[in-house]
Nucleic acid binder design. Structure first.
Length: 741
DNA sequence: ACTCTCACTGTAGACGCG
DNA sequence: ACGCGTCC
DNA sequence: ACGTACAGTGAGAG
């Protein structure tokens, strides 16, 4: 039911918080839409004639598909980028409200039956609408349709409105379009009503939460209390108190607790066991899906064939109509991908900071004073001898070799889940296991001998992203990091608070990291200073040592290298907290790809791949010269300033990493949690594994919910030990032969 | 008289043709 | 501009 | 084992 009477209350008490806009003005904007309410409306109204609805051959209702299909196309054609958010589990507090609705529907069903009996058309019409219920199947149909159309779908973990609001707060969408006033209570910064009202019965209205608070002169907490008092889905208000009185009381007393204490108990009866605090919690800290802070929504081209099959063959849509509609989606996609670059322009013109420069160098150590040695390659690439086995040299005789294997296996079985049949086998029948391994070894030796010197090694190197890959997203490090970046932009770059989240994300999207984007826009801050601020006060204590992962890593025979966009200090801190310091041969980090100065001191091959970009001379130049870097051609619409920073997901960064690590991409597996990094990793020729996702994404060869599942999902990594083993055996044999010869 | 609350009821898409 | 039938 | 919401109305309380 949303918040009772909030529209009126705001119209009367905060008229300036709402402004009339137009449908067209949201062109180019990402808009979150609550899917359930839309589907509900479609089911009620699309193609309804009494109890008749639009159906497919199988007699299943298709009204929701019809409605959603045309509405979404309408949005796309207007240049908007819709994100549909589906409901998750409703909070427990909402149960009673839902039960009420359920019983109402049951009543309506009875009335409907009676109406059909008596044959009164209007009653049939009326009551059949009231029995409408959005089922799981409807939801699934719609998700499928949207995905085929290339439109992003979000599954909220609880209330869709809460999820929408969070998407908006974090800048992933520009606004939430809904009719539900709850959206404001959940704190969606920009909330649009009647956006879909093609009837023009109501104009499109935009609410801004910040303006509401300002005009009502309330804090967000107080506003939430106000909404609870007005009456929300989660608990009753106080009888006799509506919007007006609630506003007065909140202004006067500040919080529900105080109001309860002060108001007349004679006149107002406070409900017993009134769960207003729980309701407050739902609004204030709603359960939302823990999504990747850096995840970027994409509106991709529709899957034409499958979409046609779904609509035409399965649901009886008119073929020509669908074909025409798909054409519209494609055209809209094409236009908006061209338009995307425009969205950064406003910041280019207005945001190049002038004042912030003076204070710039006081926070961090100017890089010029840092010891150049610190940036030599060795620091970032702790090159160690390639460690394949314990004491490889000693493995002259098979027995020694098997002792090594035993060690590894013993290590495995101590922590790997029981599912590893090898480990069990080894534990139960150590002697037999040894014998079997011995035989396998001999077999491998002879196989190898037959094949000759052909190198069978499948993987030589494993390239790991660090944050959100080696430890889960839920630690909140990523979130804290983002907050710090926003804080930095606010404090030191003097960017307007209202622009920060959105700008942050846009730059991230366009340049790979927000920092790279800021640099490209001409902000001349110091890299180290930025990193120090952003990574300085992260809640590292939340990272706990991960011995399981450590053992997994140590048991992998391949080279293992970290590839992160973060700086060295952060990488060191994280790895040390996780207890993984010594698991990696090297770290490719921000400084590796963006040497502070003296790019010449780099190895030739590294420099070669960097030289296609302008080296970052930025730090050596004066402010005015730096500003000149941001100059772009006003007349060329497609040109944005190039980033001077090399980072994922650019293909150049991938190739640079491959060169620095000196690996063959075909024999390297790249682990990352970001879809676009995976895509560009694939483009660079790497094997790719998306971590933290249960579904495959474009460009990924494999999906891992957690890095801990690596052994189950990629047994090849360990199986390769046998390959390595063959190699060792063989090379040993060859050497022996040489010696003998 | 006037303000406010409450309970109840009604209504809700999108397109294209003429 | 509008009403009205149609979509499946 | 489930899934929506506001606007308008008029009666009645204070």
């Amino acid at each position: 039911m949303g918040i009772k009477g909030l529209t009126k209350l705001l119209a009367a008490n905060a008229p300036n918080s709402m402004k009339e806009t137009t449908f067209e003005s949201y062109s180019g904007r990402e808009i979150a839409v609550d899917a359930s309410t839309s589907i509900y409306q479609f089911l009620i109204v699309v193609g309804r004639n009494g109890t008749q609805m639009l159906t497919n051959d199988a007699g299943q209702v298709t009204s929701h598909l019809q409605g959603l299909f045309s509405r979404t196309i309408r949005l796309l054609e207007a240049g908007m980028k819709p994100v549909y958010v589906f409901d998750g589990k409703p909070p427990d507090l909402k149960k009673q409200e839902l039960a009420k609705r359920h019983s109402k529907r049951m009543d309506a069903s009875e009335y409907l039956a009676a109406a059909i009996e008596s044959g009164v058309k209007e009653d049939i019409e009326k009551y059949s609408k009231r029995t409408v219920k959005v089922t799981r199947q409807h939801n699934e149909d719609c998700k499928k349709l949207l995905r085929l159309m290339g439109v992003p779908v979000v599954e909220a973990s609880s209330e869709a409105e809460a999820e929408c609001a969070t998407l908006c707060k974090t800048g992933k969408v520009y606004a939430v379009a809904s009719e539900d006033m709850d959206t404001l209570t959940f704190g969606a910064p920009i909330f649009v009503r009647h956006l879909m009202g093609s009837s023009r019965k109501f104009p499109v209205v935009q609410y801004e939460v910040a303006k509401i608070l300002k005009e009502l002169n309330l804090t967000m907490d107080q506003f939430i209390d106000l909404c609870i008092l007005c009456g929300c889905d989660y608990c009753d208000g106080i009888r006799g108190i509506g919007g007006q009185t609630a506003l007065k009381l909140v202004r006067q007393h500040g919080s529900i607790e105080n109001i309860v204490e002060k108001i007349s108990k004679v006149r107002y009866r406070i409900p017993e066991n009134w769960p207003f605090q729980e309701a407050r919690c739902i609004f204030k800290d709603p359960v939302v899906s823990v999504s990747d802070q850096n995840h970027v929504f994409e509106w991709i081209t529709p899957d034409e064939e499958v979409l046609k099959n779904f609509l035409v063959n399965e649901n009886g849509f008119n073929h020509d109509r669908v074909t025409k509609a798909i054409g519209k989606i494609k055209a809209a996609n094409y236009r908006s991908s061209n338009r995307r670059l425009h969205s950064l322009k406003p910041w280019l013109r207005t945001s190049v900071p002038l004042k912030s420069k003076e204070t710039k160098c006081q926070l961090g150590v100017p890089s010029a004073f840092l010891n150049p040695k610190m940036f030599s390659l060795q620091v970032y690439m702790h090159l160690r001898p390639k460690l394949l086995w314990p004491s490889v040299d000693e493995l002259v005789r098979p027995v020694n070799l098997f002792l090594g294997v035993c060690k590894e296996l013993a290590l495995f079985s101590s922590y790997i889940h029981v599912s590893s049949s090898w480990s069990i086998f080894f534990l139960l029948f150590p002697f037999q296991a040894l014998l079997l391994l011995y035989l396998m070894g001999l077999q491998a030796f002879f196989d190898m001998d037959a094949i000759g010197r052909l190198n069978k090694t499948k993987y030589e190197c494993l390239l790991f992203d660090m944050d959100d890959t080696l430890y889960p997203m839920s630690t909140g490090i990523n979130y804290a990091c983002r907050k710090n970046i926003e804080e930095y932009m606010l404090q030191f770059l003097e960017i307007d608070a209202s622009e920060v989240p959105r700008m942050c994300l846009e730059l991230y999207k366009e340049y790979g990291t927000t920092m790279a984007g800021l640099k490209a826009l001409g902000y001349g801050f110091d890299n180290d200073e930025f990193h120090a601020f952003v990574h300085g006060r992260l809640p590292y204590e939340r990272l706990k040592p991960d011995p399981v992962l450590r053992n997994l890593l140590l048991s992998m025979p391949q080279r293992k290298i970290i590839f992160t966009n973060a700086d060295k200090a952060h990488a060191d801190q994280v790895l040390s907290r996780l207890g993984l310091d010594d698991c990696f041969e090297g770290i490719i980090c921000f400084e590796t790809l963006n040497p502070p100065f003296e790019p010449n001191s780099y190895e030739d091959e590294v420099y070669k791949c960097l030289s296609s970009e302008e080296p970052d001379y930025n730090l050596l130049f004066s402010d005015s010269e730096r500003k000149a870097d941001a100059i772009y051609d006003e007349n060329d619409d497609s040109l944005l300033p190039k980033s001077q920073i090399l980072c994922k997901p650019s293909l150049e960064s991938m190739e640079a990493a491959i060169q620095i690590a000196n690996v063959d991409p075909k024999k390297t597996i790249f682990f990352d949690d970001s879809v676009r990094n995976i895509a560009s990793g694939k483009a660079a020729g790497l094997h790719t594994v998306i971590v933290g996702s249960s579904e495959l994404v474009p460009g990924a060869d494999l999906a891992l919910t957690s890095i801990h599942n690596i052994k189950e999902a990629l047994p090849e990594i360990w199986e390769e030990e046998e390959d390595q083993f063959e190699q060792v055996v063989q090379s040993t044999a060859v050497e022996t032969v040489d010696v003998l010869a």
